[in-house]
Design a binder for these strands. Structure first.
Lengths: 314, 314
DNA sequence: ACCGGTTGTGGAACCGGTTGCATGAGCCTG
DNA sequence: CAGGCTCATGCAACCGGTTCCACAACCGGT
């Protein structure tokens, strides 16, 4: 395993110069930079991460906190963040946060020593935990806002409101909204937007929930949906909607439209079903860019510390 | 941020002794160990990861390679591995491997410099890539076997065979197996077991596929299932089965039983639908234990380098 | 021709642990 | 009681980069 010293010898310079040539090319003579780079290439030099971290006092790792991996909402976010992290030569570790409060706090404090920053994609965790993380290291929130903290959110509330309007236009008179997990920030936003849209368009609105984002919980809402004699349903999450559609079919219920996401609508060949697609990947990318900015990373585009993505409906 | 030197001063010993007292208590006097531990506790000392890594020449990180995060088969595996890694004070990074061959190879070689070992939960990747990883660092395969390499697999082949037998007993005469992704090791195993079980029980078997493990691809098989006039279907993955069930319902097809997993069967209240449940968490745990053994970690139980979990059907 | 300023480079300290080796105290054995 | 042994400990050299500082060469300006 070649070291920087090997590269330096081959290039005929000192370790110090070699380091500068590779890391801060502007501080070395162009000709030197070229020679050092060639030497590094030839030897297949890969900088030792631990050494770099130790010298710089940074870990080169950021953590993304998610409530679960079993929800396809979070995986693209992770993917996007991962891609951006890798682009800056950073590693991403995933912290799954399904624990109860005290354990969460302990886990965050433990983790804080091992990372340079946090991405919090945990819609339900208490503010206290997020603040604890932020007290240690730079922290960016994903899909949730807390006063005074940087965040990236998808503006689904507006999209959900528009969806209700869309249904109203199509002549639906009784609409159901199936709320998300208790304490979800997004759920609060969406409820407000949906209530406003419903009263604006004069439809009858039934609010169900709270409801975890799972297939099974969608199945479980079928009865209430039927009881509400709704013709249109807006579920908090795709998995809920899928469970609901499934259960309605099994009961032989027809004439109820459940909004979903593009992939589901397409693969099932559903017609006239509106869909909302959150670009999770983008969400992860933007949030990571924000974090990199906070960390003083040069190579990433600067992003405002508070960011809203608009969400299309179709 | 307190360092080992601070702890040493407070405990009235040298850095060397402090290090030994914390890391190898058997090498220090019990009384000293106690004093050092108390000092560390008092200062809230957390060892600097980078320094430890640099000194030991190990990264303290292992990577788990998965094809995607959008498949609920892999997430429990990751969870299990993560839990075991944390138990040994190691970090787990997730490498998603959806790239084409050359990029995969490059990614693995890059990663190899930054980790102590690999867990490969990539059922389809070519052997070459796995071997490349193994050439650099200890590597354990998950749910796949390659000659001469340590692995942990769920014996689903046997379970799938039993499932066919179960269907035959219930009087089903035409059975469909929907194969998994092209090149999947497990798929090969299952096909063999299913063929054997079918010919043993005299049922007519139709093999479909290969078929990616997605909801959409399950939907797409509905036509072929109907054409085969099958009354029982055994899909490779839960997501495929779910898509198929969905599509069959929409067509109004009844009388076709699709095997699934416990969670689905329960939440939908399906009766008389057999289910297969792979304990993914366990799979991850065992594989990580194997890897820890290879890495010479003391604290983990030694596990045979080739391990098969039996899979229950119900 | 002399001086202040820029630029490129090397020496060496440093990040915070781990560990080989040497030292000395205390114990057992012959 | 001497010689050899074990045991606990400290010193100092690492691991492999980064960066402060000093120094030298070279620039243009007066």
């Amino acid at each position: 395993m070649p070291t920087l010293a090997d590269v330096a010898v081959l290039a005929g310079v000192s370790k110090a110069t070699a380091s500068r040539a590779l890391g801060r090319p502007d501080l070395a003579a162009p000709e030197t930079v070229a020679r050092v780079r060639a030497a590094a290439e030839q030897l297949g030099f890969v900088p030792n991460r631990a050494a770099t971290q130790l010298a710089r006092g940074r870990t080169g790792v950021v953590a993304i906190v998610v409530p679960t991996l079993d929800n396809t909402f979070f995986t693209p976010i992770i993917g996007g963040a991962q891609a951006r992290a890798a682009g800056s030569g950073m590693q991403l570790t995933i912290a799954v946060h399904s624990l109860e409060h005290a354990a969460q706090l302990a886990a965050v404090e433990q983790l804080a020593h091992q990372v340079d920053g946090f991405l919090f994609a945990a819609p339900r965790g208490s503010d206290e935990i997020v603040r604890a993380a932020a007290a240690y290291k730079p922290t960016v929130l994903i899909d949730r806002e807390i006063d005074g903290m940087p965040s990236t959110v998808a503006d689904t509330a507006t999209a959900f409101g528009a969806l209700v309007g869309w249904f109203a236009e199509k002549g639906h008179e009784r609409i159901v909204y199936i709320g998300g997990p208790a304490g979800s920030w997004q759920d609060g936003q969406r409820q407000a937007a949906i209530r406003a849209a419903a009263s604006a368009s004069g439809v009858t609105l039934t609010m169900l929930g709270p409801c975890p984002s799972t297939f099974a919980s969608g199945v479980a809402t079928a009865e209430a949906v039927v009881a509400a004699r709704a013709t249109a349903v807006v579920p908090y999450a795709t998995s809920i909607g899928l469970g609901l559609m499934f259960a309605l079919m099994r009961r032989g219920v027809t004439g109820v439209v459940v909004s979903s996401e593009g992939m589901v609508v397409e693969s099932l060949g559903l017609h006239d079903v509106p869909s909302i697609d959150v670009d999770g990947e983008k969400l992860g990318e933007v949030a990571m860019d924000q974090l990199m900015t906070l960390l003083g990373e040069r190579r990433t585009p600067a992003v405002p510390t508070r960011h809203r993505l608009t969400v299309p409906i179709s």
